[in-house]
Simulated scan of single mutants.
Amino acid sequence: MTTSIASQLELLQQEIAKSREKHLNFKDNVRLVAVSKRQPIEKIEEAYLNGQRDFGENFVQEGVEKIHKLDKSDLQWHMLGAIQSRKCKDIAEHFDWVQSVDRVKVINKLNQARQGRSPLNVCIQVNLFGEEQKAGVDADTCFELAEQIENAENLTLRGIMALPPKQTEYNKQLSQFETIAELYRQLATRYPQVDTLSMGMSGDYEAAIAAGSNMIRIGTAIFGQRD
């Protein structure tokens, strides 16, 4: 198991480096978030021992249990899943990042629950292609939420997260990611601290990086199939 996760992480870093090198205008490092939902703590520990420091969870309770079990000060935990307002306190108290913010009520509750701690890093989840089954906001609402986060003293606006429609063709993937990247550039122009474009998963991260993504979220390609 050790070799498997170690080799998968190494392979991914090589592929990320190759994707970056293809695009000479790409200056950022690409941050790899290992999506650890429904993965046993032993596999997360293996990834940690092999240098992985960012982990993403979709379910609050599961994430909180893992954060307690793997009590390491150099880890960054990312909340990726849909947020119920009653879970905001747990998120604010345990996670370092929230990537799935999509409404004002959640912003207010996270801000309130984060008092007395370092600011919580926040990405707005966007849904620019009108997929009704997915969370996320349109471009106009994104700017409205950005202003709310900017005015929340315990939150830091870092950027946007997107999960566009699944495409298998590279050019279609790239086209979607470029649409999202354009919104990100507009947001970064308005808010200088914005530095994170979180998009790209196992099947499409190469196109995401080509469009400018500097944070990708990878699960089974690191850990294997979920339990």
Rank of each mutant, 00 (worst) to 15 (best):
T3Y: 08
I5R: 01
I5W: 00
Q13L: 08
E15M: 03
I16R: 07
I16M: 05
K18Y: 07
N25D: 14
N25A: 15
K27T: 14
D28I: 01
N29Y: 02
V30F: 02
L32Y: 02
L32M: 08
V33F: 02
A34K: 04
K37E: 09
P40R: 01
P40L: 02
P40D: 14
I41P: 14
E42A: 14
K43C: 05
I44T: 11
E45N: 12
E46Y: 00
E46F: 00
A47R: 05
A47Y: 03
Y48V: 04
L49C: 08
G51N: 08
G51E: 04
D54F: 11
F55A: 09
F55R: 05
F55L: 11
G56A: 10
E57D: 10
N58E: 10
E65L: 10
H68V: 12
K69N: 07
D71T: 06
K72Q: 15
S73Q: 13
D74E: 15
L75D: 06
H78C: 06
Q84M: 07
Q84I: 06
S85P: 00
K87I: 10
K87F: 02
K89Y: 08
I91C: 05
H94K: 07
F95N: 02
D96N: 15
D96F: 00
Q99K: 02
S100T: 04
V104R: 12
I107D: 12
I107W: 13
N108E: 15
N111I: 05
N111G: 11
A113Y: 12
R114Y: 10
R117E: 11
R117W: 03
P119R: 05
C123R: 00
C123M: 15
I124A: 04
Q125D: 08
V126C: 02
V126H: 01
N127K: 12
L128S: 09
G130K: 13
G130Q: 13
E131W: 08
E131A: 13
Q133N: 13
V137N: 11
D138L: 06
D138P: 01
A139P: 00
D140K: 15
D140M: 06
T141D: 06
E144S: 10
Q148Y: 13
I149S: 09
I149G: 08
N151G: 03
E153D: 11
N154F: 09
L157I: 04
R158Y: 00
R158C: 11
G159V: 01
I160A: 06
I160K: 03
M161S: 11
M161N: 11
L163H: 02
K166W: 02
K166Y: 07
K166H: 12
K166V: 14
Q167I: 02
Y170D: 14
N171G: 03
K172I: 08
Q173C: 13
E178F: 00
T179R: 12
I180V: 15
I180Y: 05
E182S: 14
L183K: 06
L183A: 07
L187T: 03
A188Y: 04
R190M: 12
Q193H: 11
Q193W: 02
V194L: 10
V194W: 03
M199Y: 00
G200S: 10
S202D: 11
A207M: 11
A208D: 09
S213N: 10
N214I: 10
N214F: 07
M215R: 07
I216A: 09
I222Q: 01
G224Y: 03
G224R: 05
R226G: 09
